[in-house]
Structures are given as structure tokens and as C-alpha cells.
Amino acid sequence: MLSWKPFALSVAVLLILFPFVYLVLLSLSSEWRFPDLLPSYFGLKNWATILGSEAGLLESFVSSLLISLSVAIVSTTSGFLISRAVFYHPKKNTLTLLAYFPYILAPVVFAACLSFFFLKMGLFGNITGVIVAQFIIAFPYALLFFSSFWNKKIKSYEDLVATLGGNRWQTFIKVLFPLAKGLILICFFQTFLISWFEYGLTSIIGIGKVQTLTIKVFLFIKEANYYYGALSCCLLIFPPVVLLYLNKRYVFKKLV
């Protein structure tokens, strides 16, 4: 009897790939009106606008990249260093619970309640403000991510380095960073994605002046410009796909 499983899996693979293919096709189309099953124009016209300033997509791509890289670098570094203090603290369970409050709250609601303070600090409607706001939501994630790293084994390594005369700097550079390298890289990817995918918080703190790719997607949806919307979606999806591939190929493999 033939197994149904290969058939079901093939359908599943097609379903997974379908959104990627459909969005690329939509981004290459224009004048695709109901009830046509295929677009009347199919070509690179929309993609050519990336290089022009008409839609400002290249600018949005660069802004998104700058914001996400900054958030990922700062939150991973601070998350790693501060998590050491938190998870070696006698009250670590209570501190961990406190870290969950901002982590669990919807970022958009958090941003709406914080917007007054951002306005007072001159962080409203600019890239710095968006980076700070996204850092506030990415930091608890990074901190909790490293919770399992600071265990008894790591503590004994630290004690051993101290016994052998190593200083704090040497402990971090020669022992802790090499041991946590894989986790740091995964945390960097994850916090990059948290920032890259963020829409609600960015729209509140950036008040439309900071136009990341997610903001652009929504603007194009509101304008019913679905072709540019699909193009923005492609730009939004492909960097994470590359990151996932690198993550899976190089990071997970080394960790296993």
C-alpha cells in the first residue's frame, strides 16, 4: 500500500513556499485587477523603484537595518552582561519574574503608555527614540535568554580562573565569551528579528516619521498599493531567511 505521508509532506512544502512565491510574483506585477487570474503587466518596474527615491524603500531598508542592528548589538551585549548579575543574585527568582512583565506586555500598548516620557526626553519621532523603545522590549528577552547559561558549571570555571590569577577582563574574554559564543549569536539573531518585525511600537514612537519597512508595508496597504506592499514584504522577509539559513547551517550545527 502506498503511504500518504510523502504526498501530505509535499503539499505542506508547497504551502510553506507559496507565500514567498506569491509575494515575489505580486511585487513583479501591476494592473492585476479582478477577475484576472494573471497580471497584465509582469516585470521589474516595481523593483526598479527601489533604486529611485519615489517610494523611499531603499531608505526604509537602510533605516530598518540600522535600527535592528543597533537594537540587536546593544540588547545582546547588555542582556549577556546584566544577566550574569541577575542570575547569580540570591533573589534571582524574583528578579526573573520582574523581567517577565515588560516581556509579556504587548509592545504597542507599552509604547502608548511610555510615549509621554519619550516626548519629554526628545525621543519622539526620531530613529534614536525608536532604537531606545525597541531596546526596552528586546532587553528582557535577551536577559531571559541567557538565564540557563549562568549555572554552577560556569561559576566554577569563573572561580577556577580567579584561583589561577586571572582578572575579570580575562575571565570574560578567554572563558565566558568563548563558552557563550553560540548563544550570543542566536540571541543576536533573535533580537535582530524582534526589532526587524516590530510595527506597533515603531508606529507609536516613530509617529510615522521613522519609516521602517513594516511601517511602509502598512502605508502601502492603506493606500491599496498592493504591488509596492508586496515588494516591501519581500524586502522584509528575505534578510530573516538568509539569517535563518546561516543560523541553521553554522550556529546550530556547531552547538550540537
Partner: peptide, 14 residues
Amino acid sequence: YLPLAVPGIVTGFF
């Protein structure tokens, strides 16, 4: 792993 690369706003749009 690919679906993890698709953010909520893109899923909504799609």
C-alpha cells in the same frame, strides 16, 4: 524553519 521568517504584518497582508 521558513515560516519563522514571516512577520505578523506580512502574514496579515498575505
